[in-house]
């Protein structure tokens, strides 16, 4: 693998995400109610809660595409919009939420992760099409594709990929952004063992390089194994703390999260 670029600098601030009194609603129905928490920089956080508990809503607020009714969000101690405009926030959606019929190749999809950086290219360069942009962008894109082992499919239209390949493309797109904070919405769901392994390995390396990871998941086994901190969420914060304390049965019952026993053993066998 090519040499990794410099580790993430933005860990100067102690907290990556700081949320206070956050309330959000869809069509007047409350989804998040007075949520407050802090997530440390450079750590791996997982958000756990039952369906409809506001996990995805929380991520879309951090990603900037939903405006909360009330409450305050700070990223790295500062204005979240300013952070986003510096491309410091990367978001990996659930893959059902994308238009896979879109006429775009794997390479071009991954390249969109660089668009924020291209906007800051000098003068007229920012208006250039992605394929004419600086070599640096293309090198980063090639490295990300190699890292998720999708480089041989770079020219393939995204509509022809399998579910696991689609996730890996989204992961590569996230990597090209080189953001100090990444938000992942159920990156492990519906994957075979190899793709799952690959995504977790990539995230672990990113974590070692100082990236802050916020991951929504139902996967308790891998949470136990990798997470530094767990946020139990069900419309409001149930509790937040290290996985060993948060993943006890009584805590999970309070969150109404899926229990250890309801996990499918086959999917977790290799990671356990």
């Amino acid at each position: 693998m090519a040499a990794n670029p410099a580790p993430y600098q933005s860990a100067q601030a102690d907290s990556a995400v700081s949320v206070s009194g956050l309330t959000a609603a869809y069509d007047g129905a409350p989804v998040l109610d007075n949520v407050s928490f802090e997530l440390g920089a450079g750590q791996w956080h997982t958000v756990i809660g039952p369906n409809g508990s506001g996990k995805t809503t929380l991520l879309t607020i951090l990603a900037g595409s939903l405006t909360p009714v009330r409450g305050d969000v700070k990223l790295f101690g500062g204005d979240p919009e300013a952070c986003r405009r510096r491309s410091e926030v990367a978001y990996m959606p659930q893959h059902e939420n994308l238009e896979w019929d879109f006429p775009i190749s794997v390479w071009d999809t991954v390249m969109t992760g660089r668009y924020g950086h291209m906007r800051r290219d000098a003068l007229w360069r920012r208006f250039l099409p992605a394929r004419l942009s600086a070599d640096r962008h293309r090198e980063i894109c090639a490295r990300a594709l190699a890292e998720v082992r999708m480089d041989h499919l770079a020219r393939r239209p995204i509509g022809q990929l399998s579910g696991g390949q689609k996730k890996r493309v989204l992961l590569a797109r996230m990597l090209t952004q080189e953001a100090p904070l990444v938000l992942l919405d159920e990156p492990l769901v519906g994957l075979d063992k190899d793709s799952r392994r690959l995504i977790l390995d990539v995230l672990r390396r990113q974590r070692e390089r100082g990236q802050t990871i916020v991951m929504v998941t139902h996967d308790l086994v891998n949470t136990m194994k990798y997470a530094d901190q767990v946020l139990l969420l069900n419309r409001s914060v149930i509790d937040i703390g290290p996985p060993a304390e948060m993943l006890r049965d009584d805590m999970l019952t309070r969150t109404a999260a899926p229990n250890w026993l309801t996990q499918t053993p086959a999917a977790d066998e290799e990671d356990a």
């Binding site: 990603a63 595409s65 986003r84 510096r86 990367a90 994308l98 668009y115 924020g116 291209m118």
Partner: peptide, 17 residues
């Protein structure tokens, strides 16, 4: 680039500021 991004993935458009 902006039009491509916005027609393809509006959430990513916002996340990139």
């Amino acid at each position: 680039k902006e039009l491509l991004l916005y027609t393809f993935d509006p959430v990513q458009t916002r996340a990139l500021g």
